[in-house]
């Protein structure tokens, strides 16, 4: 699924400017606990989370997460947006909660990230 399609499905706003809408996202991972993101195979995934602090961006960098979407319209601080720009990780926000965001993407055909 492309980043452009995901933005449509989640009615999302792009927080980091100038993103490549053709980026291919292979799977979805919904989590607030960052160790899980690193435990399960989440490379090339979309991370759906309710947290927006620097360690979320670093987790994404290390786990190979392609894009992060913050639920419930959370807007991260400017230093976090800047860190994501440096790491080249697009950030989105959606007004949906984690349940609805996951549900809409799953229904549209985005698979879950692999177990291990």
């Amino acid at each position: 699924m492309t980043l452009g399609e995901i933005i449509d499905i989640l009615d999302a706003t792009v927080i980091t400017d100038s993103v490549d809408l053709s980026i291919n996202i292979r799977s979805g991972c919904s989590a607030d606990m960052m160790s899980t993101v690193m435990y399960y195979h989440t490379a090339d995934s979309l991370l759906i989370t309710g947290l927006s602090q620097p360690s979320v961006i670093r987790t994404a960098e290390i786990a190979g997460i392609k894009t992060i979407v913050f639920v419930l319209d959370k807007i991260p601080d400017e230093n976090i947006i800047e860190l994501a720009r440096q790491k080249n990780i697009p950030l989105l926000r959606t007004s949906f909660c984690m349940y609805t965001a996951s549900g809409r993407l799953f229904q549209a055909g985005l698979p879950s990230c692999l177990g291990k």
């Binding site: 606990m33 960052m34 690193m38 989370t49 947290l51």
Partner: peptide, 12 residues
């Protein structure tokens, strides 16, 4: 509350 302490650090 900051997303850590799930008991997966050492196992990871």
């Amino acid at each position: 509350a900051m997303g850590w302490g799930a008991g997966m650090g050492l196992p990871n």
